[in-house]
Design a protein around this nucleic acid. Sequence first.
DNA 1: AGGATGCTTGACGTTAACGTAAGCCGGAAC
DNA 2: GTTCCGGCTTACGTTAACGTCAAGCATCCT
Lengths: 131, 131
Amino acid sequence: MENEMMTIRQMCDAFDVTPRTLRFYEAKELIFPVRDGQKRFYDRRDRGRLKLILRGKRFGFALEEMRQLLNLYDRGDAQEEQLTRTYEAARERLAQMERQRDELTEAIIELRAQLEHGAEMVAAFRKPAAE
Amino acid sequence: MENEMMTIRQMCDAFDVTPRTLRFYEAKELIFPVRDGQKRFYDRRDRGRLKLILRGKRFGFALEEMRQLLNLYDRGDAQEEQLTRTYEAARERLAQMERQRDELTEAIIELRAQLEHGAEMVAAFRKPAAE
DNA sequence: AGGATGCTTGACGTTAACGTAAGCCGGAAC
DNA sequence: GTTCCGGCTTACGTTAACGTCAAGCATCCT
């Protein structure tokens, strides 16, 4: 049933993206709809890829990263080594996110201290006393 | 002693920024060095502002936000209401950071689940089975 | 005098992920 | 037949915070 081709509009509705986005992803070689004259048609594979792209975005993967990951699984039949590489990429990304969160946490603590602990923040904003 | 003017280079060394950065901040009206012919000279006030700008950056304030905060304290003599406003700005920013951290934490949990909990992530990257 | 520095302005480049506008085309509805 | 709808392409605009030339003075040292 849902094995058939979809138009750009159907895709947009299904995935809540704009046509511009789909064409952009195509330009970036993330998806490869079939062209019938001027029109684009998206098959199951495109839908699968798009789904992953959007999921990846939620995890903070850049489009280029996703492209590489997706391409990894397009040539060759997903060998062990490549599966491993994907794991590694995901784990690296996870580590990045954790570092980022930690930095943020530190900054929060610092800022909170300034706010609660005294009027330093405000004082800091005051003009240096006239000489 | 350290009450005197500093050249752009002295500033760069003191604050670990590039000349480009100082000129950029000037163009954005964050600091206002005195000009003697071609040269720029930075006084205590500029140093104070720069210090705050850099501190603000660590907290994730945008330059434009910092400009507004700084300007708030330049006209008028820092009235209560304005001090309050700065507090509010800082608190808002804090809330933003906390939200951001929470989102990140969620994403981390999700991603971690995919990695630990099964081969879903990898499976997801696999081509849909040929029909 | 004649580099070698150091400072200046101005303008374009960078990164990401699209938004937006302009202008063209083909098919469908009236 | 003509208008309208949707799709198409191309290309510039957006945001932040500078980096990176390019090219021109002024000054300092020898």
